[in-house]
Design a binder for these strands. Structure first.
Lengths: 347, 347
DNA sequence: CTGTTAGCGCTTTCAC
DNA sequence: GTGAAAGCGCTAACAG
């Protein structure tokens, strides 16, 4: 069915359908909403008109009239290129889609201004809820969204300065466990690599790491801690620096997969036998030909749980009734390859 | 529904702001749209009221009144968990976001029904455009969207049965080049692994592979072709089958990264020295300790270009003026490790 | 400079 | 069983 060029390219409206079926707009609505009290004959005619015109109800107009949201869920993440976040997105979508909700992605590139703008835009679009991985400590824009009545769920990092449902990973416990495993292998000088301290997960994981060291009666040597690496190159450089210390660590604990991969590169390049442990599993981690202790967790599930919390919240009192809920996902340790013990077992 | 006294959960509207600032609704609009002809004093009052109420204009109502779309771009992909698609999504978003457009993701899980439903939903939401990686040969739902006046851009696969802008990768050329490289190493029995034949890219790449074989005067042995593998496990199994043939291939060409990784697993497990070539680059491809020829291309750029085509199209005649455009992205060959020549150079 | 009127596409309410 | 009127929140087009 070709369109006559130059004719009105306007999309058909309810009225167009009504006119074509020789009924009123109301009747068309009724047919579309499966109202039982329409004569079969009328229904037929209406459906025929709908098909002929290729009519699609305007969801915006409908939402406006009905007074509810747009049927959208805003997803605010820092970097969709990281498989971690795309998994999260997928998890969210898999839960909210069955409820007729679509997911709008917002990539903030770790930029707080972008995040603010994005959240304001989402609120303006009347999203039914927001799932966010807050980039920084300043979350007033999220607090504002909550104040405006938009349900917010924080994923991977907790809300700061306001109440909201959130899903976290057991960052502290997982990190402590990873470092404990290195300690059990006899390592006594263990380096730490991670993204900037402003990133909640990194700080928590560093806390866990330090707790393990302290429990083992080891000093907390600042020289072995490198925070701030956002990508693989930076991580490799930082790891290289640690390995070049006069008294280099015999093992490294990396608080996210970017840093683990960077450390892997540095260790490989140095040709040494530094042991590696990391947080976040990643594809091909088992194929690197280097032993690796990984604290893994299900990032899909992180998204799904965030989606569940959001849907629950949307359904309950819009006035923000129930108290905020928190879910903490466990991690599990995975050992790839044969563990590397410390080079010289302490006497 | 009892109305809670004092705590009206309703979001403030333009009128609320107007009332509070003691002006008319129109004036508030003008202030918000930066109309120069409002008295500074009035503007102040209005802005104050806006701030006090935390007012956010309702984008849906605005779009409805203005008669234009929702400011959304629909992105239809088969599997966001594949880094390829998340990169694509990121590329799209990076281009459309600066135009004030948000990206709505639609994950179809390779299901044609989901795709149909999704596209219909997006059209109903009055998205300003759709970027799709069509799952199958039946694309009538996309054709319908185009007929309704929604600009559609196909990414990675061409439109079938209708006209639309699209961005492709040089599947044929890249595949032929990869197989040529294996041939140059002396390989004469080369296996092919890929996703189902219904996937356009796979079929094109198989064509390229066969063209290279034919040009080298080699037979096109069906036993060496395995199509249908969607994930790494299936690919590993298929690769294992090829390697177990009485006269096994000495090299494998894999038409996407899932199959390359699967083949890598199988070759490693078999302990043989089968040579590998693949389409699509992937993280850590260089760290597998196995030589690998990869036809790489920029999946971000694929998304960006799709975004550009879409934005261009949206700006030009809404009546579908200009003829459909096509962009083909080049691939480049990357060699990881030292090439593996064929075991016994033909005499 | 500011206000009034009308209506985007849809649906609720109340007639017929 | 069906229709007419009114209005969701916003803004173009005209007053004033």
């Amino acid at each position: 069915m070709p369109h006559a060029p130059g004719s009105k390219a306007e999309r058909p409206t309810l009225r167009d359908v009504a006119k074509r079926a020789a009924v009123s707009a109301m009747t068309v609505t009724r047919v579309l909403r499966d109202d039982p009290r329409v004569l079969p004959g009328t229904r037929e005619r209406v459906l025929a008109a709908v098909a002929e015109l290729g009519y699609r109800p305007n969801a915006m107009a409908r939402s406006l009239r009905l007074g509810h949201g747009s049927g959208l869920v805003g997803l605010v993440v820092t970097n969709l290129a990281n498989p971690f976040y795309s998994r999260l997105a997928l998890g969210v979508d898999s839960v909210v889609a069955p409820h007729g909700l679509k997911t709008v992605i917002g990539n903030t590139r770790q930029d707080l201004d972008s995040e603010r703008e994005l959240v304001a835009d989402l609120v303006g679009r009347r999203v039914d809820g927001i799932i966010a991985v807050p980039a920084g400590g300043d979350q007033r824009h999220l607090a504002a969204a909550v104040a405006q009545g938009v349900p917010v769920v924080c994923a991977s990092r907790p809300p700061a300065g306001f109440e909201a449902d959130h899903v976290l990973v057991d960052d502290f416990g997982g990190a402590r466990n990873a470092t404990d495993r290195l300690l059990a292998l006899g390592h006594r000088r263990i380096g730490f690599l991670g993204p900037p301290a402003a990133v909640y997960t990194s700080t928590e994981r560093l806390r866990g790491h330090r707790a393990a060291l302290r429990a083992a009666g080891l000093p907390d040597d600042e020289r072995y801690v490198r925070q701030g690496q956002q990508d693989i190159e930076q991580a490799a450089r930082a790891a290289g620096e640690l390995l070049a210390l006069p008294d280099p660590p015999t093992a490294l604990f990396c608080s996210n997969n970017r840093n683990t991969i960077g450390a892997f590169r540095a260790v490989t390049a140095a040709g040494g036998d530094t042991a590696l442990a990391g947080f976040d599993d990643f594809e091909l981690a088992d194929a690197l030909g280097l032993p690796l202790i990984i604290q893994a967790y299900d990032s899909d599930e992180l998204g799904r749980e965030a989606g569940r919390l959001l849907v629950d919240r949307m359904r309950s009192a819009p006035g923000g009734g129930a108290p905020a809920r928190r879910t903490v996902l466990p991690t599990r340790a995975v050992q790839y390859g044969t563990p590397r013990p410390a080079p010289e077992p302490c006497p």
